[in-house]
Design a protein around this nucleic acid. Structure first.
Length: 251
DNA sequence: GTTCTAGAAC
DNA sequence: GTTCTAGAAC
């Protein structure tokens, strides 16, 4: 029997989202954590030292019966950020907050790891890709070092810049939903791709320009080492880290 | 999303 | 000659 299911867009995240008992059926090299509503997984090709994805599980809510299609939200709602925002209706805020709560836990875990491995913590940011190439809504939780062997193309770089429009910061999405700003939602998607394609390579932290990716990657490595040196010195002299790079949600 | 590779850039 | 990008295939 040739059940040649189309590979594109890639379905792997959706397959994870539908798994009934994640702990038993998804290997620990992939699955990080889960609740009845959401799960966190390792990005298969991390674009930074720390890079995780948060996905809503399906059916939603979990007691719904997949076969009898009793999910309150149809599967199509979870295709992408766009479909989620356009078709998610009143459930958008609840679903998003379940994702956000897990993202905060993952963020906490990352900070612990950072401290264990490097002796200091640095920025972690969160958001969605406006035009994802993998099916099923997913929130990126990623450290801002971008030191990874899988981070190697201009598209990689521009798709994670928080200031271009292709990467949609979590705060923007939260704002749109909370304010009921349907017009911003409608407008956003259209601009994203063109901006992405036309953008030259430059470091989003210091704005320095680069002719190619290897140059940018060397810059990122140097920048990280400088930040690390500064942070370690700070910790040594004051007993704690006082770094503006570290986001301020710690109590 | 990645891989592969032709040919542009150096 | 080698490095690097970018488009097609998957």
């Amino acid at each position: 029997m040739s059940k040649k299911t189309s590979n594109f867009p890639l379905q792997i995240l959706r397959e994870y989202a539908k798994v009934r008992s994640p702990a038993r059926n998804i290997p620990p090299s992939v699955l990080l954590s889960h609740t009845p509503y959401v799960m966190s997984i390792h990005d298969a090709y991390p674009k930074s030292k720390y890079h995780f994805l948060i996905l809503p599980r399906f059916p939603y809510p979990p007691e719904a019966d997949l076969e009898r299609d009793k999910s309150i939200l149809p599967l199509g709602v979870f295709d992408s950020l766009e479909t989620f925002l356009m078709k998610g209706g009143e459930h958008r805020w609840t679903v998003l907050q379940q994702m956000v709560n897990m993202a905060r836990d993952v963020e906490e875990m990352i900070r612990d790891e950072m401290f264990k491995t490097e002796g200091f913590t640095w920025k972690i940011y969160m958001g969605f890709h406006a035009v994802p190439s993998m099916n099923h809504l997913h929130l990126h939780v990623i450290s801002d070092d971008h030191l990874s062997p899988h981070f190697k193309t201009k598209k990689h770089h521009n798709s994670f810049r928080p200031d271009l429009g292709f990467f949609v910061p979590l705060a923007s999405v939260e704002g749109w939903i909370k304010m009921g700003d349907e017009e911003s939602i409608r407008r956003h998607e259209l601009n994203s791709s063109e901006i992405l394609l036309s953008s030259p390579l430059s470091c989003f932290r210091c704005d320095e320009s680069f002719g190619n990716m290897p140059e940018l990657k060397r810059h990122l490595e140097g920048e990280f080492q400088a930040r690390k040196k500064k942070a370690l010195k700070e910790i040594e002299t004051t007993g704690r880290q006082r770094d503006s790079d570290v986001s301020s949600e710690e109590s």
